[in-house]
Computed example of a mutant assay.
Amino acid sequence: MRTFIAIDVNDAVRSVAQQSIEKLMKRGFKANWVSKENVHLTLFFLGEVSRHQIDEVAEHLCHRVIGFPSFSYIVDKLGYFSKGNQPRVIWLGVKSNQSLQKLYEEMKAELVKHNFSFEERFSPHITIGRVKDFPNAWQALIEDITFEPIVVAVDRFSIYSSQLTPTGPIYKQIYECSFEGGLIKHE
């Protein structure tokens, strides 16, 4: 199954994501927009993984982060990844901090032990859309959208399956792991 590891966001972030998408649509952007309930901060995309592997990795990751201190991160801007002079992905920016980076590094070290490999460096962001078409002067139209910074508390991570459908992906939470030492399996 196609899987990823993520940190959930709060309702304030979901609301800002929805408001930003509505503004971008009115400004002529066409994209595969992320639905409000699917907004999250991806830590790792694992790709196609067997159920057995996920069960094993979930247990090991959760054991590794037991006792990890709760922390928060700040969502503070709208941004984009581009290729050439074309926007590809529009996202909400996450101000990286030591705790978020440390959680990523701890989990990455455990995943490498289980033969997962990751080339990219960690650039925390919350994807809200994969751009299909865009208006002229697109940069200014994205950079013009602002919002008050939002603080998001973190005390757990989740592992999701992602089923691709013609109407967009369907995410299903498989595991949830609290830093205080609880692994919950969702059926």
Rank of each mutant, 00 (worst) to 15 (best):
N115G: 08
A109S: 14
A137C: 11
E22L: 15
T167M: 12
W138G: 04
S178Y: 13
K102H: 14
E120Q: 14
D55F: 07
H125F: 06
R14Q: 08
P149E: 08
E143H: 12
F147P: 02
Q139F: 09
G93L: 06
F116L: 11
G181K: 09
F71D: 01
Y104Q: 04
E106V: 10
A109Q: 13
I7H: 01
P166T: 05
P135G: 13
V34Q: 02
A6S: 13
C62M: 09
F122D: 00
F71E: 00
E22W: 08
E22Y: 11
S99R: 04
Y160R: 06
H125N: 04
R121G: 10
A31P: 02
C62Y: 02
K83M: 09
S82V: 05
I150P: 00
F179A: 05
G168Y: 05
Y80L: 13
D8G: 10
H52I: 12
V49E: 03
Q86G: 10
L92E: 00
F29T: 01
S15R: 12
G79C: 07
E22C: 09
L111N: 00
R64V: 07
K23H: 11
D144F: 11
Q86S: 15
V13T: 07
K132Y: 09
L43M: 11
V65E: 03
N38P: 02
S158K: 12
S72V: 06
I145L: 14
V75F: 00
G47E: 07
K108E: 13
T3Q: 05
M107E: 00
Q101E: 09
S15M: 10
L24F: 10
E37A: 12
V16F: 02
L103D: 00
M107D: 01
V131D: 03
K36T: 10
E56G: 08
F118C: 05
E105W: 04
A31H: 05
R14S: 04
